[in-house]
């Protein structure tokens, strides 16, 4: 299996690289040990709370296990995993919108940032993340994959199943929207 740098946060191969094909249990376990943390972090940036992020990632590894025989390489598996995490996160956000349209008494509590999370993040970061949460789902996904996962545009396009042009426009609009929020807050503070 080859090694590849896919963005700066995932690298394959290295000391754990193996040449012989692995069965699904062994292969998924290896990727689970190597990439679960990064995937949970990715999902967390998309869905906001850690527990949901863990569930999304667990589902993604389950889906990976079922598709294992059809994936020819770690590159393919990692790409599949990443896309599954993004799609799973998107489903979560879609359901949250459904919940909010039909408000339940406990909905706010379920989706709110845990108190300890707010305390640990500096205010400057909270402003940015709040602006990120206000973005449409597609723009949010592109921004996260671009500025946290550091994926190239082509990789983002493949992950999200959109064109490179759509990636560029979503990234541009997302950046502009976040910048506008941050600038207006800055002016408000002056």
């Amino acid at each position: 299996m080859g090694t590849a740098m896919v963005g700066r946060r995932w690298s394959l191969g290295g000391a754990d690289a193996v040449d012989e094909p692995l069965d699904a249990d062994s292969g998924v376990e290896r990727l689970f040990r190597a990439h679960r943390l990064a995937m949970v972090r990715l999902a967390r940036l998309l869905v906001d709370d850690r527990e949901t992020a863990e569930d999304v990632v667990q589902d993604a590894f389950g889906a990976l296990h079922r598709r294992w025989a059809a994936l020819a390489s770690d590159d393919a598996a990692l790409g599949y995993l990443r896309t599954s995490v993004v799609n799973g996160s998107r489903s979560v956000l879609r359901r949250r919108r459904t919940v909010r349209r039909h408000p339940q008494p406990a909905a706010d509590a379920l989706t709110a940032e845990p108190a300890d999370g707010r305390v640990l993040l500096a205010e400057e970061h909270r402003d940015v993340l709040a602006a990120l949460r206000a973005l449409p789902t597609r723009q949010r996904e592109v921004i996260v994959l671009r500025y946290w996962a550091e994926l190239p545009e082509a990789q983002i396009a493949a992950t999200l199943g959109i064109s490179v042009g759509a990636v560029k426009s979503s990234a541009s609009r997302g950046r502009d929207a976040i910048a506008a929020v941050l600038n207006s807050e800055q002016r408000g503070q002056q």
């Binding site: 943390l37 949970v40 972090r41 967390r44 940036l45 850690r50 992020a53 999370g117 640990l120 993040l121 500096a122 400057e124 970061h125 940015v128 993340l129 990120l132 921004i143 996260v144 500025y147 946290w148 950046r175 502009d176 976040i178 910048a179 941050l182």
Partner: peptide, 19 residues
């Protein structure tokens, strides 16, 4: 906007580091 990009990356790092 370089500053926006810098702040995005910093915020992401901080958020991700909570995990």
């Amino acid at each position: 906007n370089r500053e926006t990009e810098h702040r995005l990356r910093a915020a992401f790092e901080a958020k991700a580091a909570q995990v």
